[in-house]
């Protein structure tokens, strides 16, 4: 499968990744080979097969609606690269 620059850029955008030119070139080749290999799946007759999204046959696993104590704020924020006023911080983000 041939992967063009546009597709690599689209995947970078979707993945929030920015590759160097060399990485892009390598990605074109590797992804082309791998996706080409994945295309072997097209030879498989899957007519009428629903598809398995989960290996377990279970269903209906619930928790009851009961409030439990939340975590201490310090533990939740403890790994944050930046915090302020009990909040996580990101660069100015406006809609």
């Amino acid at each position: 499968m041939t992967i063009d620059d546009g597709l690599i850029q689209y995947l970078e955008e979707l993945s929030k990744l920015r590759l160097t030119e060399a990485e892009q070139a390598a990605a074109r080749e590797d992804l082309g080979k791998i996706l080409g290999y994945m295309q072997t799946l097209s030879a498989l007759d899957t007519e009428g097969v629903e598809g398995l999204s989960h290996p377990l046959a279970n269903e209906n696993v619930f928790r009851e609606d009961a409030a439990r104590p939340s975590a201490a704020r310090e533990t939740i924020l403890g790994n944050a690269p930046r915090q302020k006023g009990g909040c996580f911080v990101v660069p100015k983000t406006v809609e």
Binding site: L35, L41, S42, L44, E50, G51, L52
Partner: peptide, 15 residues
Amino acid sequence: DAYYKKAMQARELIQ
């Protein structure tokens, strides 16, 4: 459909 869905179907057939 060509990749993810197909893979889920293959998965069911393998199981």
